[in-house]
Design a protein around this nucleic acid. Sequence first.
DNA 1: ACGGTACTAATGAACGTTCATTAGTGCTCC
DNA 2: GGAGCACTAATGAACGTTCATTAGTACCGT
Lengths: 191, 191
Amino acid sequence: MDRSTPASRGAVVDAACQLFADRGYHGTSMKDIAEALGVRAPSLYNHVASKQEILFAIMDKAMERALAALEEALAGVEDVSEQLRRATESLVLDFLRFPAEVTVCNTEVRSLEAANRLAIVAKRDHYAARVRQIIEQGCRSGRFSTRTPQIAAFAVLEMGNSAKSWFRPSGRYPDTYVASEYGEFALRVVG
Amino acid sequence: MDRSTPASRGAVVDAACQLFADRGYHGTSMKDIAEALGVRAPSLYNHVASKQEILFAIMDKAMERALAALEEALAGVEDVSEQLRRATESLVLDFLRFPAEVTVCNTEVRSLEAANRLAIVAKRDHYAARVRQIIEQGCRSGRFSTRTPQIAAFAVLEMGNSAKSWFRPSGRYPDTYVASEYGEFALRVVG
DNA sequence: ACGGTACTAATGAACGTTCATTAGTGCTCC
DNA sequence: GGAGCACTAATGAACGTTCATTAGTACCGT
């Protein structure tokens, strides 16, 4: 990291995010984060109050962004099939564009202190509930055919995770193409 | 843990597995593992050489079991649709029956030392390749219809992960029922 | 039946290292 | 001259691990 400009809170959070994604929260030290910024560990405390605060900031920002993207993707869409397609595409696009943030959200909930965990889990559950509602509504109206809408919802949500494990921005498919593929998969899962 | 019987290597590995799944490798201390067994930390070294060795033992055992289950599930099955269904069911059943082991395999590859990581990743890749081959063969023979067999393979493999995040043995569906649902999902994904 | 021996498994103490964090100090730019 | 930001130095706590030692148990030849 460039040392010509002073480190900012945002730079600390971003550097930490990449490291937490690669090595985990407990596998990353404040010294590691500082080194990524070309600075000594105690200097980080000029920008953040604690290591735990960094973790919470990463996850809260990521959840807010994902929720906003979902709402935007669904705005004004009436057809339930189109809703599921767009929700899935929004989800996968978020995974592909912010893989580090998403990885941290997926793996470090357990490293949050109790109060922070409650806040993040609530947002995550809200996201999952939104997708489940779509599938349940589709089942009620007969557009979808699944014996187990809840299980299908979990499957669709999880499916997208696979994308970020192999996707490379320089690869053969653009992110929007990959997202549309997963949108198709989601519609197939619900029949 | 019962202190009437002495701790064995297997007991150490099992206790560590649960803790690693809950708190992560770096989030679990040797003292934590020892306490779960009703013993002091140094006593663990009568049974294992190092903390890292415990992690490797957990993951290697889990991978071997999963690979064996896959081979058994596919033995003698010719039809490619039936192959995919059985592979998925085998995968999901493994997830549901050994959630802690699977969680460790999914999240702690990064905590393995280089040599150990190579060994585990090779087995994981072998598993994934087996499933991908089935889907690719199905596409070639026209039984499946997917533009992107590789992506579909990743989606199917990942999908199963969701099962263990909500499944409870005491819940309303038996594990075999859940597994068969995911088998159905997999077939739908490939068309 | 008995003493000797080897083995297993546990212990407290201590090792050196790393951890997150605090205190205090100085430079630099407005 | 004051705010912002980095520094060095130092803190207590926790980490994985090693060590010498002890208690209990099982097998052995006699």
